[in-house]
Design a binder for these strands. Structure first.
Lengths: 231, 231
DNA sequence: CGAACAATTGATCCTCATCAAACCTTGTGG
DNA sequence: CCACAAGGTTTGATGAGGATCAATTGTTCG
């Protein structure tokens, strides 16, 4: 069942698009559903499609020569990703996109999207806003990684996640569904260090945690950790 | 003495611009010359201008709460920087731009540039290419920082710099003019570690070094270090 | 020559990654 | 409904990589 084109208005890139535009995009794209763990594309693939995530969650990861993975960002519903093919000719994806759960995305041919954007400056600006946002985020994360300790980075990761997708729990806490492994990858550390830090925080009453689940009790305490001077 | 507008064609963003476009840009911008160590703008300033570096060199740096600096990238002649003001309203610069030597830049009012770009898709695409390039570079450097050792990161930094701005020396070596401190900031390490690694390499005959000067004797050896498996 | 600043080098310490082993949680099939 | 397997989590022991600090040695330039 094809999606309602007007729903695409939720995608930040298409904020200023006309109804007509959205219909065109919907017509010229195909839906791809994949299971948890499968890939929309791999690092190094020819960037022939741009994607809009319709449902589920995905992560962008990059591997180095020896196979170690780094998590670059998590993609949520109605986010656009892998769009660089529309900008550069013969580009390759610089990262892989893997589904964290059963996910569906709209795939738009890069050639078509290129021409589409070219005649619609408001879409260009949408794309550029997305890109400048990426750049800022990556710059900040780079600085964090270079100058800050694991504890601080983890605190920030949790805060970022609560802001993006935290679910208010009945009794006031905020719940997140991530494994220690995932949190570690997002913070640039290891499963073990992440686990240790979370245990410590649990002792201090900042949060409760379980299997693939974190319940944040005291976000303000996390902010303090994220912000406190190198002391 | 105002510059020849047509020289702006060298700026990647203006690759596809018409002569008329370049003249307009030149007319609507002002030249700013600053001395070594001075700033074009500071992190947190309102992003009222986009810049094109005409001569000299500058670096983009970001500071954390405790004042530690990270070097995000070096700007060379005919590169555009600080352009995000044209894309986002009321944006603030996410980093500071400091001259590494006496430098001159063309400053273009963000408002004007915004309108200028809006009616010229080929300029939008120039900007987007620049941005996707930034994104890719930052993603790679982030991965490097997360997974690779100091020695490897430093080797890569040197190779990047030789490619971008290495000067062939009379007797075959390639010369770079950077202090240990600068190399350290670019590689995400400390002055001391950088110094140690360079000394080691000098012993091995890969390069010679002096005060704010590196003479690379064996680039291939550096490539090997940058590439060799985590062994 | 002397001041200012870049670079080196050694000693020390701390943060984290790594590895190993055990433990817990969840879901499945007998 | 229990037992077991699979996979997530915890915790301890250990060590390596680098950051930090201090002291000294170059180098450059007025």
């Amino acid at each position: 069942m094809p999606i309602d084109p007007l729903k695409l208005r939720q995608v930040s890139v298409f904020e200023q698009a006309t109804d007509e535009d959205l219909k065109l995009i919907a017509q010229h794209s195909i839906e791809r559903s994949i299971e948890e763990g499968e890939f929309f594309f791999f690092q190094g693939d020819s960037a022939d499609y741009g994607y809009v995530l319709i449902s589920g969650r995905a992560k962008l990861t990059q591997m180095n020569a020896t196979g170690q993975q780094v998590n670059l960002r998590t993609i949520h519903e109605w986010e656009m990703f892998g769009a660089l093919g529309a900008v550069r000719e013969n580009a390759m994806y610089p990262a892989s996109a893997q589904a964290l759960e059963h996910s569906t995305a709209l795939a738009i041919k890069s050639d078509y999207f290129h021409d589409f954007v070219q005649t619609r400056p408001y879409i260009s600006f949408g794309l550029m806003k997305l890109m400048t946002g990426y750049i800022q985020e990556m710059q900040e994360r780079y600085r964090e990684l270079a100058t800050e300790k694991v504890e601080r980075r983890l605190a920030r990761t949790l805060l970022r996640l609560t802001a993006q997708m935290g679910v208010k729990h009945a009794d006031g806490g905020i719940e997140l569904a991530f494994s220690r492994q995932e949190l570690a990858e997002m913070s640039g550390t290891t499963l073990f260090s992440a686990s240790r830090v979370l245990s410590e925080w649990e002792k201090r009453g900042l949060l409760e945690s379980g299997r693939e689940r974190i319940l944040i009790r005291n976000p303000h305490g996390l902010v303090q950790i994220a912000e406190e001077s190198g002391e």
